[in-house]
Amino acid sequence: MPEILNREARVLDAQAGQRLDQAAAELFGDFSRERLKQWILQGALTLDGAPARPKAKVYGGEILRLEAELEEQTAQHRAQAIDLTIVHEDEAVLVIDKPADLVVHPAAGNPDGTLLNALLHHCPSLSQVPRAGIVHRLDKDTTGLMVVAKTLSAQAALVEQLQARTVSREYDAVVAGVMTAGGKVDAPIGRHPKDRKRQAVVTGGKPAVTHYRVVERFRGHTHVRCRLETGRTHQIRVHLAHLRYPLVGDPVYGGRLKLPPGAADELKELLRLFPRQALHARKLAFIHPVSGEAVTFRAPLPDDMLALLDYLRDDSEGV
């Protein structure tokens, strides 16, 4: 039986001047903007208790109320038997350790073979949850922890935590260049002005904050640990490149390959051929949607990053 949605949210002062469909997409982030637009047109999503047009402006403080029947959300996607590394699972959430080369959600160029397809096979009831319970993403070649909501109520709770910036996400990264100390990047991110497939630090972009600290220094590289305050697309990759410490192996933001002078041939070859950005979501913490308790999960570094660090360490020690 289709589930009945009954949700309410207050438009934030910071959203003043936005279109109704834009504000709704931010406040009800577990639904696509197109779906929300349809609900607005149908009168299922109201503004201060009255129907409105998707283009209607909001000024802050209005109440958005969503009352709709939730039809199957993923009918166009098929379940596929794709191996998942499950770190934790209960009635409300699923925490996985995503491998490299796995796209999170179907899109142009990747119609299937994604995490969403794998989730539908692992837990068929996720067909009733928007985006099969996916509430945040990792890039295709970023490894590590993701939480998936198994119910609508769990999804709403996790999205609320993400919007309130109370979900703790920590990453390991290996960058080109030797950092002297950690710090914070507070720089807005938006579409690159010339390349629409890339993100960049731009005036007028969305607020983005990344904290970072040095774990280990090498002759020409640094092992860094990053903590996100916000979750913008490619945030760590963009912010570290902005500092001129791009991720090893980053095909988009990495720039020209830098090799330590006098490095062994094996290290040079590894750096040239490293197949992805050296980025791993190592730690994830949030409030469990059912128990209300703080939970924390960790995922060990994948083999490719461990090997990279070993080679860099040997190079620095002169082995």
Rank of each mutant, 00 (worst) to 15 (best):
L64E: 09
M179W: 11
K268T: 15
V103F: 07
E269V: 03
P111W: 00
R237L: 01
D314Q: 15
A108P: 10
T114R: 09
R227E: 11
Q163V: 02
D30E: 11
P188Q: 15
D13E: 11
L257H: 05
E34D: 12
A285H: 09
V175T: 01
W39N: 07
K55C: 11
S153Q: 07
A241W: 14
L119A: 04
H88R: 00
Q199I: 04
S125Q: 04
D141A: 05
R196Q: 11
G255P: 12
D186L: 04
A176K: 06
D303F: 08
H242E: 04
D303I: 07
T203R: 08
F297L: 05
D30Y: 11
Q80A: 03
P130E: 04
K258R: 10
L84P: 05
T151N: 04
Q80M: 02
I4C: 00
D112F: 00
R35T: 02
M146K: 06
H288D: 03
L279W: 12
G182A: 07
P302V: 09
V215Q: 15
Y253L: 02
V129N: 01
V214A: 04
C123T: 13
C123K: 07
R191E: 09
G49E: 08
R198V: 12
P275R: 14
G318H: 13
V159K: 11
D310E: 13
P51K: 05
A23T: 02
R169N: 09
A181K: 08
A156N: 14
L120I: 09
V147Y: 02
V295S: 05
A149Y: 03
S127E: 14
I4W: 00
H223K: 01
A25R: 04
L12F: 05
T222N: 10
R225A: 15
A264E: 10
V104K: 08
A307G: 12
G205E: 03
T151Q: 03
A164C: 12
L138S: 08
E71M: 10
A208Q: 13
G177Q: 01
V319G: 03
L279K: 09
A154I: 02
H122K: 03
M179T: 09
S168K: 07
V159C: 12
V104N: 10
A285N: 09
E91D: 14
G182S: 07
L116W: 03
S153D: 08
P246I: 10
R256W: 05
G318W: 13
P54E: 13
L301I: 00
S127A: 14
A181D: 09
G249E: 04
A24C: 14
L12S: 06
P106Q: 06
L273T: 11
D314N: 14
F286M: 02
T46W: 09
A24N: 12
E89W: 00
P289I: 12
L27V: 03
A50E: 07
T74A: 07
P130K: 06
T222Q: 10
A281W: 13
D97N: 10
